[in-house]
């Protein structure tokens, strides 16, 4: 089991209904892709938020990370749409 801090931004935050949450993930959840799969199964709001997989970007510990990036206990993992600043 690993404890993670999950953050959501923009429409992901609105769909999940929370800007952040603490979760305990089972040992098999080792990558960002594993985590999105696990989070999707938490409930209908999470499932709706993560349905548009290709439109979701991620950062692990404040650095952009791809689906195969590893995650470990204590990490801060953020999910968000492609950025639109500037």
């Amino acid at each position: 089991m690993a404890r993670l801090r999950i953050l959501y931004f923009a429409w992901l935050r609105e769909r999940v209904g929370a800007s952040e949450e603490e979760v305990e993930v089972p040992d098999g959840v080792a990558t960002v892709a594993d985590l999105t799969g696990w989070l999707s199964a938490r409930g209908p709001r999470h499932a709706a938020a993560f349905a548009a997989t290709r439109a979701i970007r991620c950062a692990v510990n404040q650095a952009f990370a791809g689906p195969q990036a590893p995650i470990a206990a204590g990490d801060e993992v953020a999910f968000f749409p492609p950025v639109t600043g500037g």
């Binding site: 953020a78 968000f80 950025v83």
Partner: peptide, 11 residues
Amino acid sequence: WLKTGAPFWKK
């Protein structure tokens, strides 16, 4: 790069 590489979102 600011438009594509910094975590800002506009509504």
